[in-house]
Amino acid sequence: MYRSDRITNWISHSFLLILAAGSIIPLILLLSSSFSSEASILKEGYSFFPKEFSFAAYEYLLTNSASILRAYGVTIFVTVFGTFVSLAMTAFLAYALSRRDLPYRNFFTFIVFFTLLFNGGLVPTYLVFTQVFDIKNTIWALIVPGLLMNGFNVLLMRTFFMTSIPEPVIESARMDGAGEFRTFFSIILPLSLPILATIGLLQTIFYWNDWFNGLVYITEPSLFSIQNMLNRMLSDIQFLASSNLGTNTSSAASQIPTTGVRMAIAVIGILPILIAYPFFQKYLVKGIALGSVKG
């Protein structure tokens, strides 16, 4: 038995080590190519050890630092604010749904679940957000549509509340005369840090990586996020591939940044989230642990 334990341990270690290496190696290639000179990428190919070391890509970014810093600012604001509001809304809704004494509980749960399956499509959503709420070219366009609250997270959190907050706790709070809101803030939330951290991480990733809302709702350059800048470059390249521009727009095409610069922007696009995420990591497993078990 002892021996079989050692063997499983050994197998696990080697397997996981390979997996971990596989996960991280591509990122290193990204990093090293952002430090390679343009000509050496085009001539020698991508490589883990730059043949010609060059800061050119980062220097280029520095000359555009105003717009990049601004994009950073937009991304950070959207991520922080969006995650916060999202957490609050998700927690409120999930908590109410977790209460077995909520009238029409099944109906409301179904309302949430239904949104996971059906959606109106891009054009109708666009109509609602531009015509009814007129948020085009505002910072809200990066926060509200599609991202602010997601049915999956609500269901995950609801399950957490149902399984990990014992009903007697709520019951005794009520006996003490605490209102629903006080119970929620002073008893439920402190008990729910793991799930809050988990959903928080998910939301942070969604907001940080979102390029779609920017593509759809933003034409004003001061509101571009980092991912939008990356996506614009990529879509410009793809556009060139599929169209006959004639001679007139080739000057527009010539403004697309080169490979090295694209890689450099990608690097500065992922670094912050890689740095931020260990802070969430601590709670991550625990949060899902209690949230995903169906109650």
Binding site: G120, G121, P124, P145
Partner: peptide, 9 residues
């Protein structure tokens, strides 16, 4: 707003 209104589309 985000899910049900657009469904009319």
């Amino acid at each position: 707003i985000n899910n049900y209104l657009p469904m009319f589309g």
